[in-house]
Amino acid sequence: MFEARLVQSSILKKVLEAIKELLNEATFDCSDSGIQLQAMDNSHVSLVSLNLRSDGFDKYRCDRNLSMGINLASMSKIMKCAGNDDVLTMKAQDNADLVTFMFESQNQEKVMDYEMKLMNLDQEHLGIPETDYSCVIKLPSQEFARIVRDLSQFGESVVISCTKEGIKFSAGGDIGNANIKLAQTSNVDKDEDAVTIEMQEPVSLTFACRYLNSFAKATPLSPQVQLSMSADVPLVVEYKIGDIGHIRYYLAPKIED
């Protein structure tokens, strides 16, 4: 028996918005410790890694490990039926081929049950090596989304360079060049407005704008985003999900020919 209750169903709605552009389907691995999802996009350029800890749910029970293969477009249709303030409960029997999403209004006067068929998906787990990153940058997530959106107008790629002085995002193409520099903030009223840089060594890497824009769909999940970079390894873009977990995106850099 698997049962997970979330008073704020909006969290799962936002998670789905944050992954459905990159992935058509994915396996939700449910265990005692929580719900995990790890999947690459079709082109194997990016990877989504989602972790929702069991202690972050309002109620959580998972008697046996369960892998739920889910079509994300179908799940998205169901999640759109939930009001933001509805209470969500996901339920599945052991070895089930169905998962039930139950939405209850706050006053419990309306109860909705949606059953969704599960899929058998080939599991391809990637071993992600532990990496000490040369640069770890934290910045407001809306700022990151804005920068990526703005630079996408100039070209397909964005160069992210990090030095002690700050971070520079650059793009260039037919219409010209664009550079956006962010310095580390010295004092801000709210932590979520801060730009912080932890740098061991300067790094400069090139990434496809298309994927960065897809990652930015996670912006509603967290006021801050963390970028971790080292030379010649994938970028990690991490959004915390309240007290329940995180979503991490990995993106392979573009390589100079």
């Binding site: 350029v45 990877l47 391809e124 787990h125 990637l126 790629s157 994938p234 392979a252 100079e256 020919d257």
Partner: peptide, 14 residues
């Protein structure tokens, strides 16, 4: 010019 790298060359598939 640049070419897009793939994650397979960085991470091991198990």
């Amino acid at each position: 010019t640049t070419t897009q790298g793939r994650l397979d060359s960085f991470f091991k598939i198990s």
